[in-house]
Design a protein around this nucleic acid. Structure first.
Lengths: 332, 332
DNA sequence: CTGAAAGCGCTTACAG
DNA sequence: CTGAAAGCGCTTACAG
C-alpha cells in the first residue's frame, strides 16, 4: 500500500505538493502536476481515506436505522437515501435493528464515536422515546406528526381518511382494521384517520372490528382469522390493512375461509409496494413516495451535517389513493 | 467532543495511561483506573473511532455489493451478513449497484481507499469479469461454480434438476422456462440443470419454450405473455421460473389469459422468499438458505481480513425442494 | 505501573 | 509555486 510520501519521493517533490496537486491542482505548476501524476500512476497510489477522514473529522457516511431490511417499502426508502448519499460522496452504513432497542443503541454508539456523521431513522418516533442527544445529526424518514426533530413523512391521518372514505363511498359501513402494534405511531395516526372518517359519515365505531398485526405477511394471515371466525352478520364487509404485506397475508386467510375478494369482502392496503400490484386481486392501497422520502431525508441530514441548517423541519410529501380490484361496492 | 487528552488532564495522568486503562485495564493499577473512569464519565468521553481505526489500519467495515436491495432474497442474505458483522464488531456498508458497472466501480474504489476492509459480492461472477485485484479481500455469496475467488453458494445445477425432475414426475413433457438474462451465471447453471433433466427423461429440448426476464416481477408478467400467446397445443403444461418474483409476475399473466394454475398449467419458482408462500396458489419452489449464505460469506471475509486463511474456498450449502399448490399433475 | 516520545497518512497555515 | 513543520486523536515500544 503506497502512501503520499512514496509518491513525493518518486516525483521528487514534497508531500505538501503532492497533496496540493491532488486536491487543489490550480495551486500547482503544470510541470509539477505532471511529475506528481506520473508518480501516482507508477506507485499505484490510492489515498488512505481513513487518514483523510480522520484529519477532516468527517466520516463521509450516514447510518440508516431500519426496523427490517426485508420490508420492501423500507428497501425503497433506502434506495432514495443511497442515491443521494452516493451523489454527495457519502456512504451508507446499514443498521438493521430488527426492532431491538439494544441493537439500535449499538448503532447509535457508532455515530457517537464518529464512525458516521449522521443518522436516518426509519421507524417512527414514539411519544415516550428520549429525545436524541443534541449533537446528533438525525432525521426521521417515514415518521409521524410531532416528531421532536427533523422529519420527512406523509400525512398518515389524511391518507388513512382517504382510504376509509373510499370504502364508505362504496357503501361499506362495517369496516375492519388490521392495525400495526397498538403503540406504533403509524398505527395511532392511521387509526385516528379511520375514526375521523367514520365520524364524518355518522358511523359508530366498534372496537371488535379492530385487530393488530406487526406489519408482516404472517401477522396479516393471523389477523384475517379474527374476522373470518366472526359470525357473518358481525363480520366487516371491508378491511383496511395498515400495510400491503399484512393485506397480502390477510388475502390468503380470507380465501382459506372461502370468502371472495372483493365480492364477499373488500380489502385495502397501504404503501403500494410492488407486490400490491401483483397480488390476486391487485390491492387498492395508498401510494407512499418511498424513494422520495429517502431522498428528502438524506438531503436533510446532509444539510444538518454541513451545518447549513438549524431550524427543525417537518416535511410532508404527498400520498395517493390507488384504486385496484381488491375493493368493490358493498353488496347486500 | 472530548478527547483522550482532556480525560488525561482531568484524571491527572498521561494520555498513555488513559489509553491503557481503556484498552488493557490489567496493566493499570486499581487506583489509577478509578481516576480514569471518573474522568471519562465527567467529560463524557467517547473514543474517536476515526483516529483509532486510522492508527490500526482497520476500518472495521464490510462493503456489501448487492444488485438490488429491494429483492427480498438479497435482503435476507444481507441480514445474515449483518448479524455476523455486528457480532464481530464490523459495520456493513451498503453498495446497491443496480446492475451498474460504474456504481460497482465506485464502491470498489472505496474499498481500495480503505473505507472498508473487505467486500461481499452478491451478484454471481461472470466468466468474462476481470479477476479482482490480489489485495482485495472479496467473497462471493450466492455465486456459481467456477468463481475464481472465495464463494459461498448452493448447487444451482442440482437445484434446477430437482425442480424440473419434479415437474417431469408429475407427467409434464413440455416444460417452459422463464430464465434470467442469458449471460447471467445463475441462468446458465439453472438452464444446464434443466437440460440435464430433460435429457435424463429422454425429452427433446425445444428452444421456443425458453424465454428471458430479469428477475423482477414485471419481467415475469412479460414472460408469461410469451407462453399465453402460443397456440394451446404448443404451450408448455408447466413452467420453471428462475426466481419467485418472476413466477409471481407470471401468475398474473397466466390468470389474465384465463389459464388456471395448476389445473391448466403448473408453475414453479426459485428462492422460497416469504412471498412464495403467500401467492395464490402458493408456489412450489427451491428454498435457498439465504440467511446462512450471508452468514457464511461474512465469516469467510472476516477470516480473510484477519489473515487466517489463504486457500480459496468454494462452500456449497444445501437447498430444498418445497412442494406447494402451484404445481400439479399433467392433465390430458 | 507510569510517562515522554514517536508515528500512523494526511493537510494547511506560514514563510519564502 | 513550493517546502518545512505542526497537528488531527490515538497507541505502543521504550525507559524508568
Amino acid at each position: 500500500m503506497s502512501n503520499i510520501r512514496e509518491v513525493s519521493r518518486v516525483a521528487g517533490v514534497s508531500t505538501a505538493t503532492v497533496s496540493r496537486a491532488l486536491s487543489t491542482p490550480d495551486k500547482v505548476s503544470e510541470k509539477t502536476l505532471k511529475k506528481v501524476y506520473d508518480a501516482v500512476e507508477k506507485v499505484q497510489y490510492r489515498p488512505n481515506m481513513m487518514a483523510q477522514n480522520f484529519r477532516a473529522t468527517r466520516a463521509w457516511s450516514l447510518m440508516v436505522l431500519v426496523p427490517d431490511i426485508t420490508n420492501r417499502f423500507f428497501a425503497t426508502v433506502i434506495q432514495g437515501i443511497e442515491d443521494t448519499a452516493q451523489k454527495n460522496g457519502y456512504s451508507v452504513l446499514l443498521g438493521d435493528t430488527r426492532d431491538s432497542e439494544q441493537r439500535e443503541a449499538e448503532y447509535i454508539r457508532r455515530v457517537e464515536t464518529r464512525q458516521s456523521d449522521g443518522i436516518i431513522q426509519l421507524r417512527p418516533h414514539h411519544k415516550g422515546d428520549p429525545k436524541p442527544a443534541e449533537h446528533l445529526k438525525i432525521v426521521n424518514a417515514c415518521g409521524c406528526e410531532g416528531t421532536p426533530y427533523d422529519c420527512v413523512r406523509i400525512d398518515n391521518v389524511g391518507a388513512s381518511r382517504a382510504i376509509v372514505d373510499h370504502l364508505i363511498d362504496m357503501g361499506h359501513r362495517r369496516i375492519g382494521v388490521i392495525s400495526g402494534l397498538a403503540d406504533n405511531p403509524h398505527s395511532i395516526d392511521r387509526l385516528k384517520g379511520y375514526h375521523q372518517s367514520l365520524a364524518a359519515a355518522g358511523i359508530a365505531p366498534d372496537s371488535s372490528l379492530i385487530t393488530h398485526g406487526d406489519f408482516t405477511l404472517w401477522s396479516g394471515l393471523q389477523a384475517a382469522g379474527h374476522f373470518t371466525r366472526m359470525p357473518a352478520r358481525h363480520r366487516p364487509t371491508a378491511i383496511f390493512s395498515m400495510n400491503d404485506d399484512m393485506a397480502i397475508g390477510a388475502l390468503q386467510g380470507l380465501k382459506n375461509a372461502s370468502l371472495r375478494v372483493p365480492d364477499d369482502i373488500s380489502i385495502a392496503g397501504f404503501d403500494d409496494t410492488e407486490y400490491a400490484r401483483f397480488s390476486d386481486p391487485a390491492l387498492t392501497t395508498i401510494a407512499q413516495p418511498g424513494y422520495d422520502l429517502g431522498r428528502c431525508a438524506a438531503d436533510r441530514v446532509l444539510r444538518l451535517i454541513e451545518g447549513d441548517e438549524d431550524a427543525t423541519a417537518d416535511i410532508v410529501l404527498p400520498h395517493e389513493l390507488i384504486l385496484r380490484q381488491s375493493t368493490g361496492a358493498h353488496r347486500k
